Amino acid sequence: MKKQTGWWVAALLAVPILAQASCESVKADITQKIIQNGVPESGFTLDIVANDQVDQAGGQVVGHCENDTQKIVYKKTSRDDESSVPDSAGSSQDSPAQ
Rank of each mutant, 00 (worst) to 15 (best):
V49C: 04
Q93M: 09
V73G: 02
S92I: 11
S42G: 10
E41I: 14
I48L: 12
Q56W: 06
I30V: 11
V39Y: 04
T77N: 04
A97I: 10
T31E: 03
N51E: 11
C65K: 00
E41N: 12
H64G: 03
N51P: 01
D80E: 10
W7P: 01
A97F: 14
V15W: 10
D81A: 00
S42A: 11
Q20D: 15
Q36P: 01
A57W: 11
E41Y: 09
A28T: 13
I48T: 15
P40C: 11
Q93I: 12
L13S: 15
G43K: 02
G58P: 02
V61P: 03
G38R: 05
K2V: 15
G38Q: 10
S42M: 08
K27N: 07
G6S: 13
A89D: 05
L18F: 11
Q70R: 08
G6D: 14
G59L: 09
C65G: 03
Q4L: 14
C65I: 02
P86N: 05
K2L: 11
Q36S: 07
K3N: 10
D68P: 01
V85A: 01
D94R: 08
S84A: 05
A28L: 08
Q56S: 13
L12W: 09
L18T: 08
V15L: 15
V54N: 04
D47T: 15
D87E: 14
V85W: 06
G38M: 10
Q32P: 03
G63P: 06
D55P: 10
D47N: 08
C23D: 06
I17P: 03
D29Y: 01
S42D: 12
R79F: 11
V15R: 07
S78I: 09
A28P: 07
F44S: 02
E24M: 13
S88E: 15
K3W: 10
S92V: 14
I17E: 09
V49P: 01
S91A: 00
I72Y: 05
Q53A: 11
S84I: 13
K76T: 03
Q56I: 05
I34K: 00
I72G: 01
A19P: 05
A11M: 12
S78N: 14
G58S: 10
K71P: 04
A11C: 07
N67R: 08
N37P: 01
S84M: 04
M1I: 12
D29L: 06
P16G: 07
S91G: 00
V9G: 00
L46G: 00
T77R: 01
L12A: 04
Q4P: 04
K3D: 15
T5S: 00
C23I: 05
E24A: 14
L46M: 06
V73H: 02
D68I: 05
K75H: 09
V49D: 04
T31Q: 02
M1C: 08
V73C: 03
N37H: 05
V54D: 05
T31L: 01
T45W: 03
K33E: 01
K33L: 07
D52A: 07
V61K: 05
S25C: 06
W7V: 13
N67A: 12
V62R: 02
P40E: 14
G43D: 06
Q20H: 14
G38D: 06
L18P: 03
L13W: 14
C65Q: 00
L12I: 11
G59H: 07
L18W: 11
P96I: 10
